[in-house]
Design a protein around this nucleic acid. Structure first.
Length: 529
DNA sequence: TTGCCGTTGGGCTA
DNA sequence: TAGCCCAACGGCAA
């Protein structure tokens, strides 16, 4: 029988949930006192690139977390300040002997946790980090892949499959898991630890969109269960066949919940597997399981690649001479490019904080290699601000993918800002919803209203160039030019790579081949039927 | 060293 | 609707 001897802080960062939270279970194990803590850094509130909708999502999530903790007769302590100094103060004040938290592989978090670890060591506090944000410990995937990041989905899948299925999700702790743990709901929890209000988070009411995706574990689990009930839909899900511009989301929109850890990726994974049992179902990379694996793929590469969110100094990223153009960038951000499909998607993003994956493809391609030739880092920043699901590893990885800077290289495949949206929404209802000034245009012209005769523009009550912008670039022209520029950038990178290789300085490819392990892994080669 | 093939392109032709 | 062209990429397995 373990003795109740520890005074414990469980530090919530991501992993804002009670289910499948091994670090929280560790915290409960032998706690005589348990303090669930979330640290809100005021510096971050003022200086970070977080939009209003995501702040609201976080506030709702913390509120829900506090409600769940109350059922365990605990409270969430939201602490204001720098995590390192605040945790040190609290450890002294509460005489803490143990700190638990979920592993975070993002570089800023790794550095922060290292510093906290040193402080804890000085204080004699034992630190227990547990992996539960990702399916696996991503470093074990790297290890099994010969010590380097897998750069294709297939090589990632091969490595991951050698680890077997991910661990089962743990149940949430119950009151029975905390016998003898002091009830903290009443005594230590003062006004200073309240859930932050939107005012405190400096959220402007006018920046908030409709609350379509409320934050929190409760909502996450409900949302997941609602989708799991649609057995045929789950089994036949193929991402490329879902529609980027349907008026109701054609995918689960669980991504914001996975980002904050309101939902465990492992729980979702095993729930899907359970629905599959005995049934024919789609396969990765297009299946729902495939989507969870994509997340894992980017987390894995991001964890071991320096400067993953930048072009310079990033060894997996092609160096491409993007050009600054404040007017074009701004038009893209504001949904004023003159291409209604692009502008509708950007408007949905700004208002609602979520857009379909393929819509992200279209606008990302448009900003970078397709049309505007503006750096993917600029797009990354805007997504980081506006997406509820903005996830550092996935955001950077996907921007590199779409700009053909890494992972994806067929740069001559360019999305048309006109044709792509038409395929799944020929009537342009999506455009009519998000760009109401265009709603009276006939379907024939709504994707390219500048082609409508003047009389028709008059009748629609929208003169192009006055009430709605003319296209800021001619897609057919810039597309051609940009493909040439991509070819040049690729050629240049190829010659510089072979130069560095000759000199033996190239970081990634100079790693010595470990000759003998080729061929003894399971062959993933699959023939298409 | 070589050949295969890659979550999701577009547009034309048959 | 399928297949081809565009112009021809790069990681990876053999």
């Amino acid at each position: 029988m373990s003795q109740k001897c520890h005074r414990v802080i469980h530090w919530f960062r991501k992993g804002l949930r009670l289910h499948d939270n091994p670090a929280l279970i560790e915290a409960c194990k032998d706690a005589s006192e348990l303090y669930p803590v979330f640290v809100l850094d005021p510096w971050f509130v003022t200086n970070s690139n977080v939009g209003a909708n995501r702040w609201r999502f976080l506030a709702q999530t913390l509120d829900d977390l506090d409600k769940q903790l109350k059922l365990l007769k605990l409270r969430l302590f939201v602490v204001r300040g720098n995590p390192e100094t605040e945790l040190e103060k609290l450890c002294k004040k509460w005489k803490i002997t143990k700190l638990t938290y979920e592993v975070d592989t993002e570089p800023y978090a790794v550095a922060r946790d290292e510093r906290v670890g040193k402080t804890m060591e000085d204080l004699g506090v034992s630190v227990i980090p547990c992996v539960s944000h990702t399916l696996y410990d991503v470093h074990s995937i790297v290890k099994i892949n010969g010590g380097k990041a897998p750069l294709t989905y297939q090589s990632f899948q091969t490595a991951a499959s050698r680890l077997g299925p991910p661990p089962q999700a743990l149940p949430a702790p119950t009151l029975q898991d905390l016998p003898g743990c002091r009830n903290l709901a009443s005594d230590a929890h003062g006004k200073e630890f309240e859930i932050p209000s939107l005012t405190e988070l400096r959220v402007c009411e006018s920046d908030l969109g409709p609350n379509l995706y409320p934050g929190g574990e409760t909502e996450a689990l409900d949302r997941m269960e609602r989708h799991l009930k649609k057995v045929n839909w789950i089994c036949s899900f193929e991402k490329p066949k879902t529609e980027p511009n349907s008026l109701l989301p054609s995918t689960t929109v669980l991504s914001p919940y996975l980002k904050f850890g309101c939902l465990s990726a492992r729980l979702f994974y095993h729930k899907i597997i359970n629905v599959y049992k005995g049934k024919k179902h789609s396969q990765p990379p297009v299946s729902l399981i495939g989507q969870v694996l994509w997340r894992e793929f980017y987390y894995t590469v991001a964890a071991v690649t320096p400067n993953f969110d930048k072009m310079e100094g990033n060894p997996v990223c092609k160096q491409i001479p993007w050009q600054e153009n404040a007017d074009h960038l701004n038009a893209w951000k504001q949904g004023r490019t003159g291409y209604p499909f692009i502008d509708a998607v950007m408007t949905q993003l700004r208002q609602e904080g979520w857009i379909h994956h393929l819509a992200r493809h279209a606008v990302a391609c448009f900003l970078t290699r397709g049309d505007l030739w503006v750096s993917w880092e600029e797009g990354q920043k805007e997504f980081e601000k506006l997406l509820l699901d903005a996830d550092w590893s996935l955001n950077a990885g996907n921007w590199m993918w779409l700009s053909a800077s890494a992972f994806f290289h067929q740069y001559f495949r360019v999305y048309s800002p006109v044709a792509f949206g038409k395929k799944t929404d020929p009537n342009g209802d999506f455009i009519r919803k998000y760009i109401p000034v265009l709603k009276k245009f006939p379907a024939k012209f709504i994707f390219e209203p500048w082609k409508a005769p003047a009389s028709m523009q008059q009748a629609a009550g929208c003169i192009i160039g006055k009430d709605y912008p003319k296209p800021i670039v001619d897609h057919d022209v810039v597309r051609q030019k940009n493909i040439q520029k991509m070819a040049a950038a690729y050629a240049k990178s190829k010659s510089s790579t072979s130069e560095t290789n000759k000199n033996g300085h190239k970081e990634l490819s100079s790693k010595k081949r470990q000759s003998d392990d080729v061929g003894d892994g399971p062959s993933k080669k699959k023939k298409k039927s």
